[in-house]
């Protein structure tokens, strides 16, 4: 494992922990956390890590899989079941039609996968779903206009994770003999592109030292 991938995993973990701590500390998911995005991410981890008990790669991978599944489920649980957090959730702003995205990703996974097995189709599904799972969150931020600091940092860390994974793939492409994984790389590029717009406005707010606001 190279340093870029490790840094990518750590920023990914940081983003999830920032969100979990924010919700836990403030007992609120206002302003601007999308339950739909969080449910999609939980589904991403659950469908990708079906190999947890069948394919062992490393202790690091196995532990991280459990941490990712548990932390993403904890966020969903808080937002759905915790009495105070649940009240702070504004579902009228969280309007992205995620069911179409789920269907599209599943059809794409049935058509485009490495091997036609249950695990592999769901692995491909999780990769496609991860690429677009941030969309409800970005739409929610767009609709509410205001982005509070922690929500901004959450998306920033997620974006950093994507960027570092791309550097990791470039590094592996040049240092490993048989590094070809089109599904993960192309989906990863699409996912990172979705953040580019947000990064631009985050950069502007940082540069001018003003509160992050997205254009309507």
């Amino acid at each position: 494992m190279n340093i870029f991938r490790f840094a990518g995993d750590m920023t990914h973990l940081m983003s999830i922990l920032i969100l979990l701590l924010k919700i836990y500390a403030t007992k609120s998911c206002a302003v601007g956390i999308s339950l739909k995005t969080q449910e999609l991410y939980a589904l991403v981890f659950l469908t990708r890590y079906l190999d947890q008990f069948t394919d062992y790669v490393s202790l690091y991978n196995s532990v991280m899989k459990v941490v990712f599944i548990a932390s993403s489920l904890a966020i969903v649980w808080c937002m759905r079941r915790h009495p105070l957090v649940r009240k702070s959730y504004d579902k009228d702003l969280d309007t992205f039609r995620h069911q179409y995205v789920l269907l599209a990703c599943f059809v794409l996974a049935l058509l485009l996968h490495e091997i036609f097995t249950f695990q592999e189709v769901f692995w491909a599904f999780s990769i496609y779903l991860e690429a677009v799972a941030i969309l409800p969150q970005l739409v929610l931020l767009q609709r509410s206009g205001n982005v509070d600091n922690l929500t901004g940092q959450y998306v920033l860390f997620l974006g950093a994770y994507r960027g570092l994974y791309i550097i990791n793939w470039i590094y592996r492409y040049f240092t490993e003999d048989h590094f070809t994984r089109w599904i993960a790389c192309v989906s990863g590029l699409v996912q990172t592109a979705l953040y580019a717009d947000f990064f631009y406005y985050y950069y502007l707010s940082w540069k001018t030292n003003t509160k992050l606001k997205l254009p309507a």
Binding site: R5, D9, D51, D55, V57, M64, E114, I115, W123, N168
Partner: peptide
Amino acid sequence: EDAKNAHDEL
């Protein structure tokens, strides 16, 4: 390279 090896990332 087999498929197992291909999923060594998280």
